[in-house]
Nucleic acid binder design. Structure first.
Ligand code: MN
Ligand code: MN
Ligand code: ZN
Ligand code: ZN
Lengths: 140, 140
DNA sequence: AATCTTCTTTAGAATTATTCTAAACTGTTG
DNA sequence: CAACAGTTTAGAATAATTCTAAAGAAGATT
């Protein structure tokens, strides 16, 4: 298990270097929190609270910087569901979301389950970057 | 055309009364700007600027209040595409959007052109409120 | 290892979008 | 025309995010 952690860390170093980002203590810690197990959806504030709780000193500005750098590097993506917060998603593969309005939680919908058909031609001179589907749900 | 305007105004009064909203000068002016011709996508700031430009005195707080009241009344809806602004849509029928990332513009996609299939069952105890599709496009 | 260079972190100020407060004002009803 | 309830608004307050500039850490160079 020490091996596994070491391996994961080494792996993260690679990913950062590949993105031309120096593997600093802060970035490694945040990357660990983000990618250590399974996919996650987080806000900057939530991740900052988590890091702080874990005893790691990292400023909120750095959390924001890091989230944006990771997004630019393609290892995170932003999800727009609620105008008041920005969510970051560690799953960058094509997939969609349930958004639970009561609790402001995101739930993944695997990329191969939903199919969107009948898309009209995008306006002349533009290309489609991504098709986002948000299924808004609330307590029945 | 004086008739048409009068008719439209009378119509707006009805809609407001139906929503238990007093037809005040401010609300009528904003409703006019919003619903007078065709469907629109606006932000609070943009609508406020428009009202001000048209020589109508209406505070930004009132614009926000009104947009939210109209949304609660079901004659407007919010569209979440960009975490930095909230867009309000005068088209409340089921339909979808292109979002032009370069210019932050929304373009309607008629409700009957796109079909979403393969939606998984929503989590136990929840029901689907709406399925939003945003097709993000940018300069080719 | 010491040095140099460049990138990174950060505290705190600043910005932006939005909401709140409380007092003045207006539409409605009897 | 009261009288009441609903509405508007200036300005303060909040919340999320970004900016600034100075101090700190990484990587390259000697
Ligand atoms: Mn906000
Ligand atoms: Mn914001
Ligand atoms: Zn996801
Ligand atoms: Zn629309």
């Amino acid at each position: 298990m020490a091996e596994k952690a070491a391996h994961a860390s080494a792996d993260l170093c690679q990913r950062l270097r590949a993105a031309a980002l120096r593997p600093t203590r802060q970035r490694l810690v945040l990357a660990e929190l983000l990618f250590a197990r399974g996919h996650r959806h987080v806000t900057a504030e939530a991740l900052h609270a988590e890091a702080t709780r874990a005893g790691i000193g990292v400023s909120l500005a750095t959390v924001y910087n890091t989230l944006h750098q990771f997004t630019a590097a393609g290892i995170l993506r932003q999800v727009a569901v609620d105008a008041t917060r920005t969510y970051f998603d560690t799953n960058v593969d094509a997939h969609q979301h349930f958004y639970v309005e009561d609790s402001s939680m995101l739930i993944d919908i695997p990329g191969d389950s939903i199919a969107v058909s009948g898309l009209p031609q995008p306006p002349k001179g533009t290309r489609i970057d991504r098709v986002d589907v948000v299924v808004r749900i609330s307590k029945a």
